[in-house]
Simulated scan of single mutants.
Amino acid sequence: MTAPDQRASVRYLVDDVQAAVDFYTTHLGFTVHTNAIPAFADVVRGPLRLLLSGPASSGARATPADAATPGRNRIHLIVDDIDAEIDRLRTAGLPFQSDLIAGPGGRQILLADPAGNLIELFQPAGQATTAAATR
Rank of each mutant, 00 (worst) to 15 (best):
T2V: 08
Q6D: 14
Q6T: 09
S9K: 02
S9H: 11
V10Y: 11
Y12T: 07
L13Q: 13
D16R: 02
V17R: 06
A19F: 13
V21A: 02
F23I: 07
T25G: 09
T26P: 04
T26K: 02
H27P: 01
L28E: 05
F30G: 06
T34P: 03
T34V: 05
A36H: 11
A36N: 12
P38F: 05
A41C: 02
V43E: 11
V44F: 03
L48V: 11
L48P: 07
R49S: 12
S53N: 07
S53P: 00
G54D: 03
S57R: 03
S58E: 15
A60W: 12
R61M: 04
R61P: 04
R61V: 01
T63N: 13
P64F: 09
A65N: 06
A65C: 07
A68R: 03
T69L: 08
T69E: 14
G71I: 00
R72T: 12
R72F: 14
R74N: 12
I75K: 05
H76N: 09
H76A: 07
L77T: 05
I78Q: 04
D80W: 08
I82N: 07
A84S: 06
R88H: 10
T91C: 12
G93R: 03
G93I: 06
L94G: 07
P95W: 12
P95I: 10
Q97D: 15
S98M: 12
S98F: 11
D99Y: 09
I101C: 10
G103S: 10
G103D: 15
P104M: 08
G106K: 10
Q108S: 13
I109H: 03
I109C: 07
L110S: 06
A112G: 15
D113P: 01
N117L: 06
L121F: 03
L121K: 03
F122A: 04
Q123R: 01
P124A: 10
P124C: 07
A125K: 00
A128I: 06
T129C: 01
T130Y: 02
A132I: 01
R135G: 15
